[in-house]
Amino acid sequence: MTAANNRRTIAVASGKGGTGKTTISTNLALVLAQQGKSVELLDCDVEEPNCHIFLKPQIHSSKPVNVLYPSVIQDKCTGCGVCAQVCEYSAIVVVKNKVLVFPGLCHSCGGCTLFCPEEALEEVERQVGIVEEGSSSGIHVIQGLLDITELMSAAVINGVKKSAGLSDIVIIDSPPGTSCPVIESVKDADFVLLVTEPTPFGLNDLKLAVGMVRQLGIPFAVAINRCDMGDGEVQRYCDDEHIRIILEIPDDIRIAQAYSRGEMIINVLHEYKGLFVQCLETFFNQKDPGLNTGQDGQ
């Protein structure tokens, strides 16, 4: 992912699911494309990718995401058990001098292969998902799809990010939550837009997400979806923490209905286009690139 110097990556994330990450990332990407910018949209919610529902990209390439796991070379193995001792994930056990590998538990650290005294292990590949690329309305769309029953979302997310790199602006649609797949999605971003809704659940999960981006040291701001429902606690929290709110989308049943049919807000409800244009202007015209880390003096 080596880039043009002026390339900017914005990750759209949220602690709570269903707050509007996909709505915001697809609409932002479309606004940018309509302004003639070169833009890529990475759907990093590889467990449940939904951007394609709204952008309906023409997929022109698909490639597997593989991870490494150890395979035993039987005539070299003495059944000494070093590999099982080395593995912190219980992905290898040795029973009666026979080595058993559980690929689903393997984190591909390479330890067992590195430390096998007999050089009796070799790393082989297996597929855990796919990365697809396509285009839609001038947006280069890259999406990952985790194979059902696989655990290693982060590997597929990494595959998506590696396929990017052609455009000036990259928008990342992250999975919900605050753990490994989310961190993998946002860690290289220049900026994170945290989406929430003004409810107790939304606030609680926003606080977790703020903790995460602060720990990663990435500048961020907040978007509030359905901003006129619920209570004012999210706004109050953002004020107290000096976090900027750069996008507020009203609670409009027509937005929910357009969403249910897989339609883009800015295409069917033109009056809302301005909100996304403004949000991008706030972002790109900002003199201070650390738009807001909510930590004064950092």
Binding site: E47, E48, T149, L151, P175, G177
Partner: peptide
């Protein structure tokens, strides 16, 4: 949790 990955399984 949402998704189909590690915590869901």
């Amino acid at each position: 949790s949402p998704g189909i990955g590690c915590p869901v399984i």
